[in-house]
Nucleic acid binder design. Structure first.
Length: 302
DNA sequence: GGTAGACCTGGACGC
DNA sequence: GCGTCCAGGTCTACC
């Protein structure tokens, strides 16, 4: 027996634009099946039951197929998936501002703007820390180790596991975390975050609906060990605040090729390039059509 | 406020 | 197969 939930999205909505909004779909416990265009996620419900969600596009939003659920569980899953996909988000103001910018035409056409989230901010902060100072391959590996070693298994399918609850990491130690997951020096930051979250010293999840200004919210994120300017900006994007740009080495390269003929640029020059987009700065950067510039450069070189 | 160096993993490369 | 080098953000100490 299965349960199928039909969830409506604030239009316009494009399922694949959310799935491909960043690399989260490649990080456990997410998996994406190209053949069926299905995004799966192993979810640990509040009462501890572990289920697998299989999400697909539908005419009005998306459908979620999972094991047979009771009414409370159905409500929890609907709320969780709505948060993960930002189903209630409205990007009309961004699209209006972007209408005259050819480099954002694709963003409007494909209803880009939503950024795939994890069910909890704890998971998104941990994953963001795992993206810092390393390659994408190492990020995927460290995250997979974390899920394998500390996540609860899906009943009957032990190789599929949910993302670890903070308490699962908090009752361990940073040394064990480091040994088992190969997260290196990041172990202390992840362990501290798990302890603070598990024992109530840090109300991380409340930041999802915080009334703080973006500046103050950023300050709160920067207080987390392991979260610097790049990670904070990335997390703000996930939280639906777009006033900051996550400037990493890749961002410097993109801006360098877009406006500075490949010459080295600084973070300030990246900021300056998107200054006019104000509260949509992060969105304009994230969904800018960088590819067309790369193609133009290639054509010029030939 | 700006800069240098340490932190750790994994991929690329040379032998 | 092994060793070396390098890329990648954050933090801390120092100027």
């Amino acid at each position: 027996m299965t349960t199928i939930l039909h969830l409506r999205a604030h239009p316009p909505f494009n399922f694949m634009s959310v799935v491909n909004s960043h690399g989260w779909n490649q990080l456990a416990p997410f998996t994406f099946d190209e053949a069926t265009q299905t995004l799966s996620y192993v979810l640990s419900l509040k009462r501890g039951r572990v289920i697998e969600l299989r999400m697909k596009e539908s005419p009005e939003g998306l459908t979620v197929e999972t094991e047979k659920l009771n009414n409370n569980e159905q409500y929890e899953v609907a709320e969780t998936v709505s948060w993960m996909f930002g189903l209630e988000s409205d990007f009309s103001a961004f699209y209006a501002a972007a209408r005259k910018e050819p480099k954002l035409a694709q963003a409007i056409k494909l209803a880009r703007g939503r950024i795939l989230r994890s069910p909890t901010l704890f998971e998104d902060v941990v994953k963001t820390i795992l993206t810092t100072n390393t390659s994408w391959a190492a990020t995927k590996n460290m995250n997979l180790n974390l899920v394998r070693e500390f996540g609860l298994p899906l009943p009957g399918v032990s190789e599929k596991r949910a993302f670890p609850k903070p308490i699962a990491i908090a009752v361990s130690s940073s040394t064990i975390l480091k040994e088992k997951t190969h997260v290196g020096y990041r172990a202390q930051a992840i362990y501290d975050l798990a302890v603070q979250t598990a024992f109530g010293a840090l109300e991380l999840e409340s930041l999802k609906t915080s009334a703080l200004s973006t500046h103050d919210l950023r300050e709160e994120l920067l207080k987390i060990n392991g979260v610097g300017p790049y990670a904070a900006a990335n997390l703000l994007l996930i939280l639906g605040r777009f006033d900051y740009i996550p400037i990493d080495s890749w961002a410097l390269k993109l801006v360098s090729h877009e406006w500075h003929r490949g010459q080295p640029v600084t973070a300030k020059e990246v900021e300056a390039a998107f200054e006019k987009w104000n509260e949509f700065k992060g969105l304009a950067f994230w969904f800018w059509d960088w590819e067309s510039t790369e193609q133009e450069n290639k054509a010029d070189a030939e």
